[in-house]
């Protein structure tokens, strides 16, 4: 029997109440993500992207439908059961970084691994690797408040990966980064993905989305497209010359 998908949603719906008026944010999403897949979720603002990944991480409650993670139903879990599940299985990168203010960068990154039962040595090695990949090795002893926005965002990514979670969820992980820092984040995402990390991320950054195996497009809370980023449909080429020519 093949293993269950890491994520499986069945007719997932989220309706907010705005002064008594129901506002549907997610309207019947069926999404299956297999282990090791990298899925980018795109769509205009207000299309339900963030609401969807927040529900997958237990940070927002569904109105109806089902959410299954790794073969278990989770939409019926209590808050504390969700907290435990997140600690063990899910890494989350928010648009705003939610770092612990009175801990150093190093401790922020090591904490999730320690909570999940890693030895201090394992946690330290993993932290050193992740911060190094993100160009932050020399910021390990800083407090989050001493870092620029783009640095905090990369620390948040390192923290989310500290644990080698079954599922990495991210909401606009390059939203605050300039193009050089984006490149570091892209490289790290590509690397952990090649090592088998399952990733679902919301982005409107095409550089990030183009790394994904699959792009899911939302519009008005529904999936309007779901498919692989295929090869470019024209003759193969050896240099960027043609790219620049085409774009000019």
């Amino acid at each position: 029997m093949s293993p269950p998908p890491i994520v499986n949603t069945v007719n997932l719906v989220r309706i907010y109440q705005d002064g008594g008026v129901p506002v549907p944010a997610v309207r019947g999403v069926d999404l299956k993500v297999e282990a090791g897949e990298f899925v980018a979720i795109m769509g205009p603002s207000g299309s339900g992207k963030s609401t969807l990944v927040h529900m997958l991480g237990g940070l927002d409650a569904r109105t109806s439908g089902e959410i299954w993670l790794d073969g278990s139903r989770v939409d019926t879990l209590s808050e504390s059961a969700w907290a435990l599940l997140r600690r063990r299985k899910i890494g989350f990168v928010f648009q705003f970084f939610n770092l612990v203010a009175n801990m150093t960068v190093a401790d922020n990154v090591e904490l999730p691994a320690l909570l999940a039962g890693a030895s201090p040595r394992e946690a330290r090695e993993r932290r050193e690797y992740l911060l190094g990949e993100l160009g932050l090795a020399d910021r390990a002893d800083a407090a989050p408040a001493q870092l620029a926005g783009g640095e905090q965002q990369r620390v948040a990514l390192a923290r989310a990966l500290a644990n080698r979670p079954s599922l990495l969820l991210a909401d606009e992980p390059t939203g605050n980064l300039d193009s050089r820092n984006t490149r570091d984040v892209l490289r790290l995402l590509g690397e952990v993905h090649r090592d088998g990390q399952t990733i679902i991320l919301v982005t409107h950054d095409a550089r990030v989305a183009s790394l994904a195996d699959r792009v899911v497009s939302l519009l008005d809370g529904q999936i309007v497209d779901d498919g692989a980023v295929g090869p470019v449909r024209r003759r193969p080429r050896a240099s960027a010359g043609d790219v620049v020519e085409l774009r000019s």
């Binding site: 795109m42 892209l186 095409a206 550089r207 989305a209 183009s210 790394l211 792009v215 497009s217 309007v224 497209d225 498919g227 980023v229 295929g230 090869p231 470019v232 449909r233 960027a240 790219v243 085409l246």
Partner: peptide, 16 residues
């Protein structure tokens, strides 16, 4: 729109 989006993303992958 869907076909065009996939095409742009494939171009972006090439550029990456």
């Amino acid at each position: 729109i869907n076909r065009q989006r996939r095409h742009y993303l494939a171009l972006m992958r090439d550029l990456n």
